[in-house]
Design a protein around this nucleic acid. Structure first.
Length: 209
DNA sequence: AATATGATTCACT
DNA sequence: GTGAATCATATTA
């Protein structure tokens, strides 16, 4: 496996990075497939990992809620015009949001990683999340970045390469869909059911009307 | 050069 | 539940 590598931790947990080929599929299908995978950050202080439990798809040119609506191409959205599997990082207020670029080259689609369930590195996460309750560590896109200590430096990184990668995870019993969060000004796109999450997982973020 | 605006979070009431 | 924070990015002049 050319793009696959294994990492062994003291807890005897093994992570197998998903290959570049994993990302070559329609965005909504990829979104669904990402639920249950592991998001891993090999931090200098230790390995951090969460199970992805919530994502949202942004379908580029035809999706009014996407930054790339109408094929808008700027320095910020540039990476979405490349091939699938790159990291699109977006910063708002004080938060950093992680995305998986999707779709073939020239098709600026992406998937926002909104929430995760802590798997490994909990003491570090607690530190990065300033001692908050465990349920509040990773139940939102900005919180997730903070818990994994990920910042804008990963813009353009590839999701199959260390030290920040997505790995094979667990199969999830039931995936639900619904409208996306926080896009109330996006007209007709408000109701598109492009949010995917694991049913009944307590780390899924709260919907904001 | 100036302004408007969030794919959010947190502290408060 | 409400509102402020707070700043990069995009847009307008």
């Amino acid at each position: 496996m050319e793009n696959t590598f294994d990492i062994y931790r003291s807890e005897n947990v093994k992570f197998e990075a998903l290959s570049r080929e994993f990302y070559q599929k329609p965005t909504l299908e990829l979104s669904s497939n990402l639920i249950g995978t592991y998001l891993v950050h090999e931090h200098s202080s230790g390995t951090l990992a969460v199970k992805i439990v919530e994502v949202e798809a942004y379908l580029g040119a035809v999706d009014r809620a996407a930054h790339s609506f109408g094929n808008r191409r700027t320095k910020r959205t540039e990476v979405m015009f490349g091939g699938a599997g790159s990291v699109y990082m977006y910063q708002m207020h004080r938060q950093v949001l992680m995305n998986v670029v999707s779709g073939p080259e020239g098709t600026p689609e992406a998937i926002l990683i909104r929430a995760g369930e802590p798997i490994l590195g909990e003491s570090l996460m607690q530190e990065f999340r300033d001692g908050r309750k465990k349920l509040e560590w990773t139940n939102g896109p900005g919180k997730l970045s903070k818990a994994l200590d990920v910042s804008m430096e990963y813009y353009g990184h590839k999701w199959w390469e260390q030290p920040l990668y997505i790995a094979k995870g667990e199969s999830v019993q039931s995936i639900e869909t619904g409208p996306r969060v926080g896009i109330g000004n996006s007209l007709e796109a408000v109701h598109y059911p492009y949010r995917f999450f694991e049913k009944d997982n307590p780390y899924v973020s709260k919907f904001r009307p």
